[in-house]
Amino acid sequence: MDASTWVAKRPEPTALARLFDYKPFLIAVCLFPAVGLLMAFLTYPLGLGVYLAFTDTQIGGNGKWVGLENFIDLMEDPIFLQSVWWTFVYTAIATVGKFALGLWLALLLNDNIPFKSAIRAIILLPYIVPTVLSAIAWWWIYDPQFSIISYVVVDQLGLRDRYYDFLGEPWPARWSLIVANIWRGIPFVAITLLAGLQTISPSLYEAAMLDGASGWQRFRRITAPLLMPILAIVMTFSVLFTFTDFQLVYAITRGGPINSTHLMATLAFQRGIPAGQLGEGAAIAVAMIPFLVFATLFSYYALGNRKWQQGSDND
């Protein structure tokens, strides 16, 4: 056969090919992995957690339905109430610290400074190191005998005659945790805000400069409003991460001294697993949900939605 006698004829699709061209089948096949994973690792544990919160289950035993009893008990539990208060304080102070320092770093990096990419990589380091590892490092820094801060201040500089007791008293322990959390949170804030800053066209700053704006006026009237949408998103994530923080606190203080640094998350774990009261631990965890939902909605609606961003209505 040569080119002149050959007739173009499309081969018949095989049964398998037809099956994959059948849309309902294709949709089911494509959705299955995602839906399966979400069901197995998100919906089921969350549902189980919520269910457990209404039972008196203990480890190794089947509990029975007790209704709101766990929550009513928690309302009168001073350790729980203190952990709620501390979770809020911790989140508030750490968030303010992270954003103040993170924004400052982002603004510095957005300018033309030498070794920019190297500095950028270094800044990401706290975020790359696994949290537990960096928590252990901080634990050493805060150690009553081997703390490098005490070593420098007392032994090298001679500014004090006694070692710091970072983790032995409630307030020093709390501040120590906040510092560690800020240190860990800065990279995320700085890098995301830097990305936001880089979306602002340099010609806006040039125009503002010609319009007579000083550096501070350019920041307040151009940078700040244009950064607000991304700031809101970063803030939401940061608040959620901080509010649900577990690793840093559990690795450095385990909630001590005398429960003064228990966050809701660490307390939930403490009660549920080491203490075996699964129902009560689940109730503490479930009690976090309303706060988280509120924080998300607040930052989303109050900060994120700007009129000038909304869809173009060319009427």
Binding site: E206, A207, A213, W308
Partner: peptide, 28 residues
Amino acid sequence: PKERDIAMVFQNYALYPHMTVLDNMAFS
């Protein structure tokens, strides 16, 4: 630049996206 008493129109206009036309024009 701000002391030179000049005004510039940019290729991409460089309008402040978060300000109305009125505020853009009144910015200086």
